[in-house]
């Protein structure tokens, strides 16, 4: 479903952040993306959600070469991707409800559908009492739930999350990953950037993309690799 071939990325005239990234993700898969801070996890995710174009190499998504897409096709593919940004990127002038509803409005869903779906999801993520609050008045954890709800409201084919457990306590982090796991079971491919080792351990059935020195190793979890990882951090 997603294929990276010899992908390189640099910012301006700086050094290459990604040098030669190669991997393939199957539909319905679940991956962690790990690596030390500054390794380029956020950069790699931005290529995945088509927020940026690679400087080199080939990326294909849902069977299409991303470099060849027209603006309309690009928009259609983006509508199939949900993103949880590290800094959430909520729109501060609109209510939590409207933030979550935004992707549906962009896709042209009816207001009736929107009221129903968004209301239900907000209840489900525990924001039922905060529908009309503006993001700046919500706690960090609540803002994060808004960001996550916004990413999944369209039931995307691919869910990309950048350090989503960053400012959650262990218990909340576990609940969040359980939620992602459930979404994955319903067919969404999930890729989560994280360096929370203990948490990843709890979901050790999932494979990891290990980003280091601008390259990606696909790691199938087993003891030896675990040791290799531990040596890195």
């Amino acid at each position: 479903m997603i294929k990276f071939e010899h992908v390189g990325l640099r910012y301006g005239v700086g050094p290459e952040v990604l040098t030669d990234v190669n991997f393939k993700l199957e539909p319905g898969s679940f991956h962690f993306l790990s690596g030390p801070s500054g390794a380029g996890k956020t950069s790699l995710l931005s290529l995945l959600y088509l927020g940026r174009r690679p400087t080199r190499g080939l990326i294909s998504m849902f069977g299409r070469d991303v470099g060849q897409l027209s603006r309309t096709e690009l928009k259609d593919i983006r509508q199939n991707i949900g993103v949880v940004f590290q800094d959430f990127r909520l729109l501060n002038h609109m209510s939590a409800f409207d933030n979550i509803a935004l992707p549906l409005r962009i896709m042209g869903h009816s207001e009736h559908e929107i009221q129903e779906n968004v209301g239900e999801l907000m209840e489900w993520v525990g924001l039922g009492d905060h529908t009309q609050m503006l993001p700046p008045t919500l706690s960090g954890g609540q803002q994060q739930r808004v960001a996550i709800a916004r990413a999944v409201i369209t039931r995307p084919r691919l869910l990309v999350a950048d350090e989503p457990t960053g400012n959650l306590d262990d218990e909340a982090g576990l609940r969040l990953l359980t939620l992602f796991d459930q979404l994955n079971r319903m067919g969404t491919s999930v890729i989560i950037a994280s360096h929370n080792m203990p948490l990843m351990e709890k979901f050790s059935q999932h494979r990891r993309l290990l980003l280091n020195n601008g390259k990606v190793d696909i790691v199938t979890p087993n003891i030896e690799i675990k040791q290799k990882l531990e040596g890195m951090f």
Binding site: Y49, L50, G51, R71, T72, K75, D76, I77, R78, Q79, N80, I81, V83, R89, L91, L102, P103, I106, M107
Partner: peptide
């Protein structure tokens, strides 16, 4: 930044 976000969410230029 907000415009970029709308694009990432799949908003068409016409929208």
């Amino acid at each position: 930044e907000e415009l970029e976000l709308l694009h990432i969410m799949g908003a068409a230029d016409s929208y």
